[in-house]
Computed example of a mutant assay.
Amino acid sequence: MLKTIMRMELKRYFRNPIYYIGAIVVALGVYNNVSPYLTIRYFNQDSEIPALAEYSEIDDADIMEGYIPASKEEQYAMGLEKIGQVMMDEYGFRPAEAKELTGKLEKSNLSFMEIAEYMESNYSFYGANTYFYESKMKQASAEEANHYIEASLKEHTYSNYFSRKYADYLGVYIIFYAILMFAFLFIRDSKRDIYELLHTKPLKAWQYIIGKLFGGMAAMGFVVGMITLLFDIIVMKNGKAAGFPVSFWDLWLA
């Protein structure tokens, strides 16, 4: 009886147009978010790497834009530079005064949090440590970016790196998709006399609930499988075309 309920539930999903429309929306949404990671390539010259002016943009940048993790020393220097700029823009410091302050902080070897506490207590400058965290990525030269890509791909395949982003975005979209589908089918069920069904058929309540649950999970699993297969084909094709190592199973194991 449990298998019968599961089959009935699957048929209800497969006959519902919203099921297919939602699956297409999920696939397009995931593609829209992960498409930049499908175009990672080696850089030929420095001019191919854009200079991002906004700190928030740099913080969000990745190797696909030509940005790589900064070393601790570089992060420290860039954070102090930003603090000095803020002191000139918002606190009226002259360039020489800002340079003197950042030089003093640099020689002090204080941690990010200690600098934040110092700036807060002496200048009422709050959140100075955030400027260091915003400096965790730096604009690389073409040589640096290519070296970073090569070093990373020696540790893991290109498809492995892609699978991490893919799993994150797919998980978000599938959750909303599943909630929508379950809610829609629940509303439809509520229009029927489920109490009468449970008392006129050789069916227990727990069988009905478990059958519907497993049927819904199977329907969602089918969508995940089809979308993953589609992206797997794309990643395999793009990765091989770019000369990156790839594995068919990386997306499935993410």
Rank of each mutant, 00 (worst) to 15 (best):
75 Q>R: 11
48 E>S: 09
71 S>N: 08
67 Y>N: 02
76 Y>D: 06
34 V>L: 07
75 Q>S: 07
85 Q>D: 06
93 F>A: 01
49 I>D: 03
89 D>W: 03
91 Y>F: 14
85 Q>L: 11
70 A>C: 02
69 P>I: 00
65 E>P: 03
68 I>T: 07
34 V>C: 00
94 R>E: 15
48 E>V: 07
41 R>P: 04
75 Q>I: 05
104 K>C: 02
59 D>Q: 10
53 A>H: 14
43 F>A: 07
80 L>A: 00
102 T>S: 03
97 E>Q: 15
94 R>F: 14
37 Y>F: 15
40 I>P: 08
109 N>D: 14
79 G>R: 01
64 M>V: 15
109 N>E: 12
92 G>R: 04
55 Y>T: 12
83 I>P: 02
108 S>F: 07
94 R>T: 15
75 Q>K: 05
64 M>L: 10
100 E>A: 14
50 P>F: 10
102 T>M: 07
88 M>L: 05
79 G>T: 08
80 L>D: 09
65 E>S: 06
109 N>C: 03
55 Y>V: 12
50 P>V: 06
61 A>Q: 05
68 I>V: 11
48 E>C: 08
63 I>W: 05
82 K>S: 05
40 I>K: 04
61 A>E: 00
35 S>I: 09
51 A>Y: 12
54 E>R: 13
98 A>P: 04
73 E>I: 11
64 M>D: 05
49 I>V: 03
50 P>M: 00
109 N>A: 13
91 Y>H: 13
81 E>D: 11
110 L>I: 03
85 Q>M: 10
63 I>L: 00
101 L>T: 08
69 P>A: 07
46 D>L: 07
37 Y>M: 05
56 S>Y: 13
38 L>V: 09
78 M>D: 10
109 N>W: 03
102 T>P: 04
105 L>T: 01
77 A>M: 07
102 T>D: 05
75 Q>V: 09
94 R>Q: 14
105 L>N: 00
42 Y>H: 04
77 A>Q: 09
37 Y>E: 03
91 Y>C: 05
62 D>F: 14
78 M>W: 03
38 L>N: 02
75 Q>P: 06
47 S>N: 08
94 R>I: 15
90 E>R: 11
105 L>C: 04
66 G>K: 02
42 Y>R: 06
59 D>M: 03
